[in-house]
Design a binder for these strands. Structure first.
Lengths: 139, 139
DNA sequence: CCCGGCCGTGCAGCGCATGAATGATTCGGC
DNA sequence: GCCGAATCATTCATGCGCTGCACGGCCGGG
């Protein structure tokens, strides 16, 4: 199996599971972090838009947002221009929560780095960046 | 989110889902391919061992092996030395099936390569190799 | 020979995610 | 200005992958 995509899938799924377990103490899942991450750099217009960016069904965004709202990490604000839409806003608490989640990911990075020469680390990072930028649901 | 692990997880999960959908025509899932892949380069001693290598529960290996056996891709052979164990053997048909699955993955690689300079491609490949080699369930 | 432990297997349950149905809201045609 | 079609958020029922547990067959030491 010399294919990149297959190995990328294997490692990615494993990494996702690992990250999920480490995230348990924060009572979050990777998908929640992804949502917060998107909100941080581009304030979302609607949940539909988020569903597209995340690549999941709109009904799932509802559940994710519910959980984050209960936690006080985000606010649901009815768009005054179009009262069907809910604009999700990141709160201070949400920003701190995202920082904690990022911290956890940084710890994983260190463990990953232990098995990877510094040169490979940088190359991997830029490669992932470019793939993510070209990905259908970019973030 | 500058962390490598998080982006690796995102892309990996997406790639896995994409690969799964492309694999539908072969009536296989990525986990099946992973199993075949392991069998190809190290003939497995027991299903327990495979469960460890795949990082899944032993009862799942049963289902995966069932499906592959019905397809004639593998054979279950009772280990004569220890009749509790089942030695899984890759058949000719299984080898061809794995080749088809690899072909599908290669097509995905081309699509991936379209968004990635050749230099990055090679760097990504070696990085994934090293991470996989250092991974708890190495294959 | 028997008993504790391991292997494979069947089964029930859990969690994530989807798709269809509902209700509220907006927009376009006339 | 009104009415039907389209859109958004939400809920619910469903499917599916995976796990944990219990059972039966099989091994090795006492």
């Amino acid at each position: 199996m010399g294919t990149v995509s297959f190995r990328l899938g294997l490692l990615g799924v494993a990494q996702d599971a690992l990250y999920a377990s480490r995230l348990a103490s924060l009572e979050l899942k990777p998908k929640h972090v992804a949502l917060l991450c998107i909100l941080r750099l581009r304030a979302a217009g609607s949940q539909m838009e988020l569903a597209g960016l995340l690549g999941v069904a709109p009904s799932l965004v509802v559940l994710l947002a519910d959980h984050l709202e209960e936690r006080g990490a985000i606010q649901r604000v009815r768009d005054p221009a179009d009262r069907r839409r809910q604009s999700l806003r990141l709160t201070e608490k949400g920003l701190r929560l995202l920082a904690s989640a990022t911290e956890v990911a940084a710890e994983l990075d260190e463990e990953l780095a232990a098995a990877l020469p510094a040169a490979d680390r940088a190359a991997l990072s830029t490669a992932l960046d470019r793939l993510l930028a070209a990905s259908p649901h970019r973030s």
